[in-house]
Design a protein around this nucleic acid. Structure first.
Lengths: 351, 351
DNA sequence: ACCATTGATGTAATCGATTACAGAGCCTGT
DNA sequence: ACAGGCTCTGTAATCGATTACATCAATGGT
């Protein structure tokens, strides 16, 4: 029923390029040029047009502009729903700042499943959007249609959907997970409990490899690692903690898939009377601000969240503008960034 | 440089309505009708068209559709930057689910200031968007141009920009702040410390009124309240705590503007050796999940975050579709919802 | 004084859909 | 058998900007 045009009519009607042309006493072509190629106009003509533009409060209708063949300045970012808001907020900030510098506008959409995602796919195919950024390992993919089918330039950030030809800016998850294990082992812990991410999740799979590699390198076999599948959310931390508490012989070191998991884990085992780091050490993953405000402060691996977003956005911009990427693209199209260990109070030497 | 069209050409060229028409052996009008008014077609014609659509993988170009006068299905949500991600994530979730049910797509954009916001204003005026939702008390407003000038249907959520004619779905902030005070006073606290939100902020101003009203009603004068301006972020909680610690005679009750502030406050005063709730009681605001995972668990006022978003979205949808709002609009166009006190371990009886 | 060249501006085609209106079949009632 | 009324489909105008090409005036060269 209600089109934007109808709304316009109800209020002030939006001026069109013809109105400006009439007000300035020139043709529509001249108005168009005044806005997009001012150097082609005599200064006094340009000024006349600009005055009319200002007087009428004219904003070019970019729907029409795009239809004619102009490029959109919208970049769509696909964010997974309902996990880890503090983490993604920082990544989005890096993206937003970088896009804005280059004249693009960030819009985000959340994955929600089925019909909802189908709309995202249609949005991508609809011509509104110039490019695509995804922070989600699972791309909208409904009934055999993928959001990538639209052929938009796209870059993955943080999680690799593993689509051939799709460049990705990622944390070196494997190495980061190794750092988690090495930190605990370095403190003397010989048996570990691991509350992972959702089974099958890209980050989880990669980090899992890192955990196993580090264990092996330290000479520890699979019997030294007890795993519990989590979900990168508070609830997974609670469930993991309950599983931990139920163990007859509890490992002294605990690795959590992310900080929220770790916080919920800590909370739950403390409620059961265990002391951290006296009775057990817990290490998180992500480095959200909050990890420094909980009790005890959480040892964790900090991801360069802002930079991951910024670098991913930069890469997409280069793709869109056709400029040569500043960054040298490694074969396979995956840029890896390193995490940083933040040693705080939730871990300490055993015994 | 790179238009969406160019991209299409690089990959499979996007089929146009004419291609489908040719493939199905009908006219473009028939194809259009098959998609938007199938009941007007003979079943066999419709089927023929649908087959061609499927075979070519045709998605209507909604840029062209909109230009002609069709309504956009995009709703733009303006989110303030860099504050309180866990809070806004829940509000957005309520918005997203509600919009999706009605066939709209949520896109969010963050406020960042100046040039950046100017782009948002242009986005709103550009014809891409059907309606506007704002969760920010300050609307993009640059050089005298407001994002509302575009005349889009709009609804404010959580914070009231106080624009005449702009409907709003709000927490009853004043009442909620009264509840904070009443809770502490009910526990016997007679002097309060208040780490507020940013001075001038809509929510802060309203809650401030509530705090003062409740103090007065309890027979406490202004000397019983010591204020420190905060910012709804961790840093404000730390600064507030330091100000509190510097006091010669510290109030036993502390009100924080939101949960993040409270968490940082608690952390900081505990580090200085104070015990909570033994030495002082602290109450937060918002009711984010995390408030139940910190040490001690945080007493707070829970906002119906999902419902605020959902109700605001519902209102906008009614505006867009021209349906009669289910909710009776009070005069002034402001719908108030109530907060809920969650009494937990960070507050207790004095003495 | 006149033609060629340059620079500024206008005219009209174009992008890809929607939809008012027109026209073509096909029934039906008289 | 034919007018009138359906139903279904096609033709072409339209949305608002961009831009290739046409036009026109002014300038400079000879």
């Amino acid at each position: 029923m209600s089109s934007y045009r109808q709304v316009m009519i109800e209020g002030r009607k939006a001026p069109r390029i013809g109105d400006v042309a009439a007000a300035a006493g020139v043709s529509v072509a001249t108005v168009s040029r005044a806005l997009s190629a001012p150097e082609k106009l005599r200064p006094e003509t340009r000024e006349k047009v600009m005055e009319a533009v200002a007087a009428l409060g004219y904003t070019p209708n970019s729907v029409a502009r795009q239809l004619r063949g102009g490029h959109s300045s919208l970049v769509l970012v696909i964010v997974p729903r309902r996990t880890n808001p503090p983490f993604f907020a920082a990544v989005l900030h890096g993206i937003d700042v970088t896009l804005a510098e280059a004249g693009y506008v960030l819009i985000t959409a959340y994955m929600e499943g089925q019909d909802h995602d189908l709309r995202l796919i249609e949005l991508a195919a609809s011509g509104h959007v110039a490019g695509l950024l995804t922070i989600s390992g699972n791309l909208p993919n409904v009934a055999g249609r993928s959001i990538l089918d639209a052929g938009l330039p796209a870059v993955a950030i943080c999680a690799d959907p593993q689509v051939p030809g799709l460049p990705a800016v990622l944390l070196d998850d494997e190495r980061a997970a190794e750092m988690q294990v090495e930190h605990l082992i370095g403190l003397g812990h010989r048996r570990l409990f691991y509350v992972s991410g959702p089974p099958g999740n890209y980050n989880e799979v990669t980090r899992h490899r890192g955990v196993e590699a580090a264990m092996k390198r330290a000479g520890l076999g699979p019997e030294a690692l007890i795993e519990h599948p989590g979900n990168y959310a508070f609830s997974g931390g609670i469930a993991g903690a309950n599983a931990y508490l139920a163990l007859a012989d509890r490992p002294s070191g605990v690795i959590c898939g992310n900080d929220e998991t770790a916080i919920a884990f800590v909370k739950t085992v403390r409620a059961a009377g265990l002391r951290i780091p006296d009775d057990l050490s817990v290490i998180g993953f992500d480095g959200i601000e909050l990890a420094d405000f909980c009790e005890p402060t959480l040892t964790t691996i900090a991801q360069p969240r802002f930079e991951l977003g910024a670098k991913g956005a930069r890469l997409l911009i280069d793709l869109l503008d056709g400029t040569e990427p500043a960054e040298v693209m490694p074969a396979g199209g995956r840029i890896l960034m390193q995490g940083t260990l933040l040693a705080r109070d939730s871990t300490r030497k055993v015994g």
